[in-house]
């Protein structure tokens, strides 16, 4: 194995790594907010909202991320919107991951006994107040491990940007490979970069899971 080529391509790897981090952070923030909104929609007392929330979650959970990204990248221009590879990929990540986060949050909220909602409502709190003050604080503890795990998936899935010229780590690794032909080494370097991001997240998920399971 000869890793001496890495030096001359370090700019490529680092730029890819930077874009992977950007896409992940943006995807993380977006999918978290969207996921919360969807989760609340799914358990809202209004049927129409529930139906929309459920349809969204079930649709995006059951189709490939690549397809979602292609819809943004190649499908949207025919509707007049034009996004580059990075934007399409990141938006696709957000939309796709939010469905999983919504599902995790919904499961968490529904694990809080229904009696609590009734009790809170009967003390005069509105639905939104009851949700915010009573249910969500309890649910958060339950949903943190699955959500960190979704973030881990999101970071891994950000490699999808490589397929739509999104200039991420995967894209550059692929390019470096086509110049150097040192395939094994190139992909090992890319793998190391990914592990820098994913191993701490995986570790955090495990620790949180154990900690919250013990106290819970």
């Amino acid at each position: 194995m000869d890793f001496s080529f890495v030096g001359s391509y370090s700019g490529d790897f680092l730029e890819g790594f930077k874009n992977t981090i950007y896409a992940s952070l943006l995807g993380l923030a977006g999918s978290f907010v969207l996921g919360l909104v969807l989760a609340v929609m799914r358990i809202a007392p209004w049927k129409a909202l529930r139906a929309i929330g459920t349809a969204y979650v079930e649709f995006f959970r059951n189709i490939p991320l690549l397809l979602v990204v292609y819809i943004f990248y190649l499908g949207l221009p025919s509707l007049g919107a034009d996004l580059d590879g990075f934007a399409s990929g990141t938006l696709g990540l957000m939309i796709y991951t939010s469905a999983f986060i919504a599902e995790a949050v919904r499961a968490g909220i529904q694990s809080v006994p229904a009696g609590q909602m009734e009790a809170a409502r009967s003390t005069g709190l509105s639905y939104v107040q009851a949700m915010r003050l009573v249910i969500l604080p309890q649910a958060v503890r339950i949903v943190i491990p699955p959500i960190t795990n979704q973030f881990l998936n999101l970071v891994k899935n950000s490699s999808i940007l490589g397929v739509v010229a999104g200039f991420d780590l995967m894209y550059f690794a692929d390019n470096v490979n086509s110049y150097t032909f040192q395939t094994m080494e190139t992909y090992m370097v890319a793998a190391a970069f990914y592990l820098i991001l994913t191993v701490p997240l995986a570790y955090a998920t495990n620790v949180l899971e154990r900690k919250l399971a013990r106290t819970g």
């Binding site: 990248y73 190649l74 221009p77 025919s78 034009d82 580059d84 590879g85 397929v163 010229a165 894209y171 692929d174 390019n175």
Partner: peptide, 17 residues
Amino acid sequence: QQYENYQEAFTALKAGK
């Protein structure tokens, strides 16, 4: 901007990428 094959590359051009 590089794609996996010419088909995808041409589609990207046609889609205004």
